[in-house]
């Protein structure tokens, strides 16, 4: 399986995300998968400016020519994308969100009904499974986790993905490897 990890940790030298991801990469390789890691803080990913050129001027291509274009290319080519980030004010980092926003070119502007709600049509035939790997803050509680999961589930529907797992850096690696394998 082709696994892509987007590491949205803004600070490499602190917290548990970077060491966890490094270790996880080794485990994923040992399980026989092909894994690529992109550390977002080392790349230029401007925030989306809402121009919609990726829908109405150059269908499928964002108007901003920076590193996000290649990240989107790798996103759509992967079987499973793991979005890794520390929680910051109860939500993954702005680095990760900017990368997700820049991905809207992988769907089509047309609306269609999905389970009784309006969503976008597909542009590609297949989309990766998406998962979250998070580091908790000191004050993270159940309510935060519920809000996060609800939003993440909706993001997956909107991007024609399904949710693989939501795990924290305190989870044993085996659980993640298992979750990757069953999806």
């Amino acid at each position: 399986m082709k696994i892509l990890i987007l590491n949205g940790n803004p600070h490499g030298d602190t917290g548990s995300i970077d060491p966890y991801v490094d270790h996880l990469v080794e485990k994923i390789k040992s399980a026989g998968h092909d894994v690529t890691i992109i550390t977002l803080r080392d790349h230029k990913i401007s925030p989306c400016i809402g121009c919609f050129h990726c829908w109405i001027k150059t269908p499928g291509i964002c108007s901003i020519n920076d590193d996000a274009r290649d990240i989107t290319r790798q996103f759509i080519a992967a079987d499973h994308v793991i979005l890794a980030s520390p929680l910051m004010m109860g939500f993954p980092s702005h680095l990760l969100k900017n990368a997700m926003d820049r991905n809207i070119c992988i769907v089509h502007p047309h609306l269609e009904e999905v389970d009784g709600e309006v969503h976008h049509k597909k542009r590609y035939d297949r989309y990766p499974v998406i998962s979250l790997l998070l580091e908790k803050e000191a004050d993270t509680d159940e309510e935060d986790i519920d809000i996060l999961k609800d939003i993440f589930r909706r993001q997956a529907v909107n991007m024609w993905s399904s949710v693989g797992f939501v795990h924290f850096t305190e989870s044993p690696f085996e659980e993640i490897i298992h979750a990757i394998t069953v999806h």
């Binding site: 925030p47 989306c48 939500f91 980092s93 702005h94 969100k97 926003d101 993001q155 909107n158």
Partner: peptide, 15 residues
């Protein structure tokens, strides 16, 4: 609303 949440630039402000 951007991808079911706040835009990344708004998240940066919240941080």
């Amino acid at each position: 609303l951007y991808v079911d949440a706040m835009p990344g630039s708004v998240k940066a402000f919240m941080e």
